[in-house]
Amino acid sequence: MLELISRLGQRGLDGAQSIGSSGLFLLRVLARRPDLPRLWPAIRAQLYFIGVLSCLIIVVSGLFIGMVVGLQGYNTLEKFGAGSQLGQLLALSIARELGPVISALLFAGRAGSALTAEIGLMKATEQLASMDMMGIDPLGRIIYPRFLAGLIALPVLSLIFTVVAIYGGYFIGVQWLGVDSGSFWSNMQAAVNFRLDVASGIIKSVVFAFVAIWIAMFQGFTCIPTAQGISQATTRTVVYSSLAVLGFDFLLTAMMIGGW
């Protein structure tokens, strides 16, 4: 029994230490004056890798999710004779929730895991240590460009997801199920408030980007530099990022609905 309690305590201490060191890691990344012109090629390369190469999965997922929401929404609304409200349902559910959350989950799965594996491999092959020995801080040269690129890429990906998903719902609702195109768009226009709905979605995706990229970078940077260690770190990135995104989504939604 005592051993169980001590093991539990040890896990608690390890968890607290890990949170503390990830906080210090974040501080060390952010508390620097970056030489942006010098870093720009690296940031541009990461924007391409994190952002442009994620477009396909974002567009395809957005299209299918929009189509499914359109189909399910129309069937439910039609029971109450409110099929013409489909545009409103689609825009609000996707712009406020599905767009930012699903983009962030896909981002964590595709880009986050790849970044953890990349940084972990750089650590295992002593590339980070050799950079350190050259008098170049890997936090500034390797981590910072990826951090910035992630912060820029995810909100844009989230917007792309939202637009494509709405068009997916439009295709199902208007082109296939016969909802009037005029009422689809005009109901959407009447119901959607830019500040409350679109801006809140963008704020959410910025927060999710921050959390997901922080977790990915920290896991890669602190992983055990072996094949097994990198694989475990990659798994942790996906699990922790997904849970963090869902947790922060609840918090942010509660704050936004509560008018904070």
Binding site: T125, E126, Q127, A129, S130, D132, M133, M134, G135, I136, D137
Partner: peptide, 22 residues
């Protein structure tokens, strides 16, 4: 940290693995 990075500019360490940027 900044003094250490300055000092390291005058050092070179050839790693056993080479540690080239892939």
């Amino acid at each position: 940290r900044s003094a250490l990075y300055q000092a390291r500019r005058k050092m070179g360490l050839l790693f056993q693995s080479g540690a080239l940027f892939t």
